[in-house]
Design a protein around this nucleic acid. Structure first.
Lengths: 214, 214
DNA sequence: CCTACCGATCGGTAGG
DNA sequence: CCTACCGATCGGTAGG
C-alpha cells in the first residue's frame, strides 16, 4: 500500500524499455521503475491474478524474494498502476488550454483521452479492467478518481451546452456515456503505432453530426 | 475442451437461481447447468484466474474432485462460456425481422446487443474480458466468432448506406467501432434491472443525429 | 540484492 | 458424487 506514494510526476510507467540508437542520453531505469513498468505490462497481458511475483522477478532478472525490498505486497503494484492510470487521464485534462471554446475543449479532451490510451496502453488496460481486484482502501480511492474524471467530462459537456455549441435538449448523461464508450473502447483497437489525434478527429464528426443522412 | 459441444439452444447460462413463488413449473437445474452458471458468475466477478476449482465446488456444495466428472479441465468452462456469449450475440441478430428497412434493422441490432448484455451480464463480461485467457484451439474459434459478429454489424451499416438511410460518405469502419463501443461499454453501467430497449432507443438519436446543435 | 524456507492453495488424478 | 492424495506453485518471511 505504502509504495503508491512513490509515484512522481509523469508516473514513470510510460515504457519499460530503453530506446534504440536514435535516442541519446536516456537515464538508466532504476529497478523500482522497471518493476512498475513490468508489472503494468504483465498485468495488462496476463491479468493481475494471472501474474505471479515469480513472473515479475523473472522479467527483472532477480529472485522473487528481492521484489519485497521494493513493495510490501503484490497489491501495492496494482494500486500504484491503477492510480497512475487515473493520474494520466486527469493530467491530460489539466494541460488542456483554457482560452478556447467549450466545444473545442471537448474535442481536445477526446484527443487527450485516446492519446493516454495509446501512449500508456498497459496502464490504461489496468485502469480499465484490473482495478476491480483492488481491496478496499485503495479501491475506494480509485473509484473516487474515476468518478471525478467522469464528472470533469460531464462538466465539459455542460459548458458546451451553455455556450450553445451542443443542443440545449441534449441527453447529457448518455452523451457522456457515448463519449466515454468511444474513448475507453480504444484499448481494443489501438496499437502502439496509432495516431491518437488523427483517430479522435476522425470520430469527432461522427459524434457531432451523427451517422444519419440528413 | 470437449464439454463445449454440450451447449444446447439457449445455452442454459441465463441464470443460476430458481425463480421465486410467482413462477411455476420451472424444471430443476442439473448440476452441469449450475456449474456453467456459477462459473460464468464467478469468472465475471473474480476473473478466470481469480476463481479456483475449489471456489466452484463450494458454490455448488460439492467437493472439488467431483467437478472433474463434468469437465476435463478448468479451461473447458472458460471456452464454453466465451462461446456461449458469442452464440448469444449471433442469435440476437439471427432473430431480427428481415422485412424491415436497413436502418430499422440497425436500430434493432443495437437493442438486441444491449439486451444480451443486460440479460446475460455474466456471460457478456466473460465474452468481453476473460476470453483472452483461452489457449489456442479454443481461442482461435472464439476470435473467429467475434470477427464474424463484427462483420455482420458492418454489413448492416453497408446495407443502410446503400438504401440511403445513412450518409453515402460515411466512415464505415469508425461508425462500426462507434456502434460496438456503445454496445459493449454497456456492461459497465447496466444492472439486471435496466430496460435495454429503452436505453438503446435513447442512444439511437445521439448516434443518428449527433450531439451538435445544428 | 541473495539463499533458504514457510504454510496454504493450486489444478488435477486414483480409485472407488 | 466421495475420500485421499499428488507435485507444483502461490504470496510472503527470516536472516543475512
Amino acid at each position: 500500500m505504502g509504495s503508491v506514494d512513490r509515484i512522481a510526476g509523469g508516473s514513470g510507467l510510460e515504457s519499460s524499455e530503453q530506446r534504440g540508437p536514435t535516442a541519446t542520453m536516456v537515464p538508466p531505469m532504476t529497478t523500482r521503475h522497471r518493476l512498475s513498468a513490468e508489472a503494468a505490462r504483465l498485468f495488462a497481458e496476463r491479468g493481475y491474478h494471472g501474474t505471479s511475483i515469480g513472473d515479475l522477478a523473472d522479467a527483472l532478472g532477480i529472485r522473487k524474494a528481492s521484489i519485497y525490498s521494493h513493495i510490501e505486497g503484490k497489491e501495492d503494484l496494482l494500486a500504484e498502476i491503477a492510480l497512475a492510470g487515473a493520474s494520466g487521464f486527469h493530467l491530460a485534462l489539466d494541460v488542456l488550454p483554457d482560452d478556447i471554446e467549450p466545444l473545442e475543449r471537448l474535442r481536445l479532451a477526446l484527443r487527450a483521452h485516446l492519446n493516454v490510451v495509446d501512449r500508456q496502453l498497459d496502464v490504461a488496460k489496468v485502469w480499465l479492467h484490473e482495478w476491480r481486484y483492488l481491496a478496499d482502501p485503495a479501491r475506494e480511492r480509485f473509484v473516487a478518481e474515476r468518478r471525478r474524471y467522469e464528472r470533469r467530462i460531464r462538466d465539459l459537456f455542460e459548458a458546451a451546452i451553455s455556450s450553445g455549441d451542443l443542443r440545449a435538449d441534449l441527453d447529457v448523461k448518455r452523451a457522456v456515456l457515448l463519449f466515454l464508450s468511444v474513448a475507453n473502447w480504444g484499448y481494443t483497437w489501438m496499437t502502439p503505432g496509432t495516431d491518437a489525434a488523427r483517430e479522435a478527429d476522425a470520430f469527432w464528426p461522427l459524434l457531432l453530426d451523427g451517422i444519419g443522412s440528413r
